[in-house]
Design a binder for these strands. Sequence first.
DNA 1: CAAAAGTATTAAACTTCATTCAAAAAAAAT
DNA 2: ATTTTTTTTGAATGAAGTTTAATACTTTTG
Lengths: 233, 233
Amino acid sequence: MATKDREKKEKQILDGAIKLFSTKGYTATKMEDVAKHAKISKGLTYFYFKNKEDLYMAVTKKAFDELRAVFREVFKFKGRTGMEMVTDLTNRYLEFVLENRMLNEAILNFMNLVQLYNNEESRNSIHPLILESEHFKKLLEIHHDCGKLGVQMVSLGIKDGSIRPELQAEITFYTIWSMLIGFERLSGPVGFEGKELKLHLENWKPGFIKLMQEMLRGTIQASKPKAIQASLF
Amino acid sequence: MATKDREKKEKQILDGAIKLFSTKGYTATKMEDVAKHAKISKGLTYFYFKNKEDLYMAVTKKAFDELRAVFREVFKFKGRTGMEMVTDLTNRYLEFVLENRMLNEAILNFMNLVQLYNNEESRNSIHPLILESEHFKKLLEIHHDCGKLGVQMVSLGIKDGSIRPELQAEITFYTIWSMLIGFERLSGPVGFEGKELKLHLENWKPGFIKLMQEMLRGTIQASKPKAIQASLF
DNA sequence: CAAAAGTATTAAACTTCATTCAAAAAAAAT
DNA sequence: ATTTTTTTTGAATGAAGTTTAATACTTTTG
């Protein structure tokens, strides 16, 4: 089928582009590089993708598809507590974003786009083609799907008692998601070789997960604050 | 003094650039726009800034300076518990990044740069000029400063009993920071008008802060998990 | 003070892409 | 076999970042 052929070619171009974007970055990757990598002429890439932005949007779409796959994968395995699921999600999410930094960047970028869209001031700064493309709606949907799955995991945990009952599932899950997003971002500077930072990634990650679990599960309350002594340092 | 004059001019150009980047975005802002906004010729901007990247680096520097100012501001007020400080930091941090999205974007971008640098594969994708510029080192330093201040706040809280004593200050603070970074990112999609999401930003924020506080302070432990019942939905 | 040296400033030239286009080649339909 | 549609190309276009050579303005210094 012609459609099948076309999709194959698109995928071929896209995969090459992802490789290039990942190693050289968006700006440094030239459309000619993309063409060369797919063994086609520069002009032809414009037959399959409207422009460079559109190509990047396709990358973003793929990133979101893979992200959702992670969520679904976790959710698929039943017979576990909500807490176990959330922990599993945390591990897989972090593995995914740390192994696919460029795809994650695309995801974060998209979140930025949504912010621009939300804001009167900056809405017009988005190129109209991006908004018109089915991509924008679709990506919001996938994002929302991920959110729904995560919220369900937390709900499950509240029902089965592995997560403390006074929590609200939506708020809680989105807070967890925040943690995951931030962890990946900070992992760069924290993992920076050179700064004599007491914290190292390998130490931080288990501590991070433990904190998250304690936040969900609850902990023994700490002893009452002592009188506040005027501090030293 | 000549130096003073130059700094003044640089600031003038920079401030205009920030305004433009904020409303139109980096790519859509042309060097000519920057020049026009500063009422100088296009060529002259290249006298004050090596190139567009360098101009953006200056923006990033400003972003980090302001971020550090937030941390210092919070830390300055003594006579409070660590928990109070962290809560104050949370509020101010979020206020800062939500009001200055473009500056925050620059900060997040820089974190990406560090990640690229950390990685053999992609290190060469960074333009050498960026690494040579004092900016790179300086920005890492400021980032580290912020981290140190935050860690101190948590340490303080552990000492004064407002934060549970079994926590490790470094791990804990960087985990909080993760939450803050992620909150801002997710605030776009979560605040998106249209999706009938149960969660709204105005609801999420207080819940988010409460969760963070409970993570730090500790909570009553939830009841033991019930037997895991094969789940329904 | 006036020449020299250095600093700002400009407009035009140059360069590097993203993007478009007209034409050719290939495939499909009639 | 001929027309029509789809795919492909390489060259042309144009936008924007960057460089440069020439000019004006300041400061230094003999």
